[in-house]
């Protein structure tokens, strides 16, 4: 177990290094010039050059990347070009909001997706099954800003059940988390359905019924743990997809998380912030996958971590 964790952590570090290199290269190749953004339109060429030199942006790519990596190893994510403060402080201030949104989204998507999937599998071939699958299909294909606006219009504007935007209480969380969750719950519903149908066909389900167990016991104690295994691996990957949705949803709902931070940074070519948020998100994805792999053997004793 310890050697497994050690190997996985080394792998994770290599992955993060790779991501930092690729992101850095992409930003370097970007036609937009961060110095112009900082200096403003009226700046003279001399001012522009001096800012460029100050930020080290006149150096060749490898030198720039080397410098970034060196400070990164010392735990320094650099300073924002525009906001004049440490990137790490900006991220730390906004991370809790994003993590909360993400957690809320995962809870919602599992609740909705898994329930839909199980019900559809148990009633497969019926009207219920068909309508649930249509709903899940709509969920998967609807663009997130549309879902967000729709939910806002119905539940905040018309019904007034939830606030329109902002941050602070549980009721603030519901609509944004639901918006992020809609797409993935569609995926989960479909995956859970096929996984469950597959499990319900297995011999051990027949054995469980032959013992005289009640239908619900067979379903929850015997089928569910087996059916949920592929879903757990999916949750790890899902965190990456969630990050994409969060950027959009935080803007729609005015949620003060790192999604908004990076959205503003992209518009102003604030490279240190983009790099910082990308690395933090990548770390979240890597940790999510690691967590999923550690949870799997707790459910399935056949899986051994080596």
């Amino acid at each position: 177990m310890i050697s497994y964790l050690g190997r996985r952590i080394i792998q994770s570090i290599l992955i993060l290094l790779g991501i930092s290199l690729i992101t850095f290269a992409l930003l370097y190749l970007l036609p937009a010039d961060p110095v112009r953004q900082i200096a403003g339109r009226s700046a003279t060429p001399a001012t522009v050059e001096s800012i460029r030199r100050q930020l080290g942006l006149d150096q060749p790519f490898l030198v720039q990347y080397g410098r970034y990596l060196w400070s990164l190893l010392q735990g320094d994510l650099g300073r924002s070009y525009i906001q004049r403060s440490e990137v790490s402080q900006l991220i730390v201030a906004r991370l809790p909001a994003t993590l909360l949104l993400m957690l809320g989204a995962i809870v919602f998507e599992l609740l909705i997706g898994l329930t839909m999937g199980i019900v559809a599998a148990v009633r497969r071939g019926t009207r219920t099954d068909q309508s649930l699958m249509v709903v899940s299909f709509i969920g998967v294909s609807a663009p997130q800003f549309v879902v967000g606006l729709l939910l806002l219009y119905v539940f905040a504007v018309k019904l007034g059940w939830f606030p329109i935007g902002g941050y602070g209480t549980f009721s603030h969380l519901v609509l944004p988390a639901l918006t992020v969750a809609v797409m993935s719950s569609g995926w989960y519903a479909r995956m859970m359905r096929s996984s469950m149908i597959d499990v319900l066909r297995q011999d051990y389900i027949r054995t469980a019924r032959a013992k005289g167990l009640a239908r619900a016991t067979v379903l929850l104690r015997h089928a569910l743990p087996n059916a949920i295994l592929p879903i757990i691996a999916m949750i790890g990957i899902d965190i990456g997809i969630l990050m994409g949705g969060i950027v959009v949803v935080e803007s729609v709902f005015g949620w003060p998380g790192i999604g908004q931070l990076v959205w503003q940074a992209i518009q102003r070519v604030d490279i240190p912030i983009i790099m910082g948020v990308t690395l933090v998100s990548a770390l979240a994805i890597v940790l999510g996958n690691l967590l999923a792999d550690i949870i799997a053997p707790l459910i399935d004793p056949r899986i051994k971590l080596r």
Partner: peptide, 21 residues
């Protein structure tokens, strides 16, 4: 009655027991 008064065993012992319990 099932499993209590009338019980059954099956062909495939490899797959007839639940792997996670």
């Amino acid at each position: 009655i099932r499993g209590n008064r009338v019980a059954m065993i099956f062909q495939e012992p490899m797959t007839s027991l639940n792997p996670v319990l």
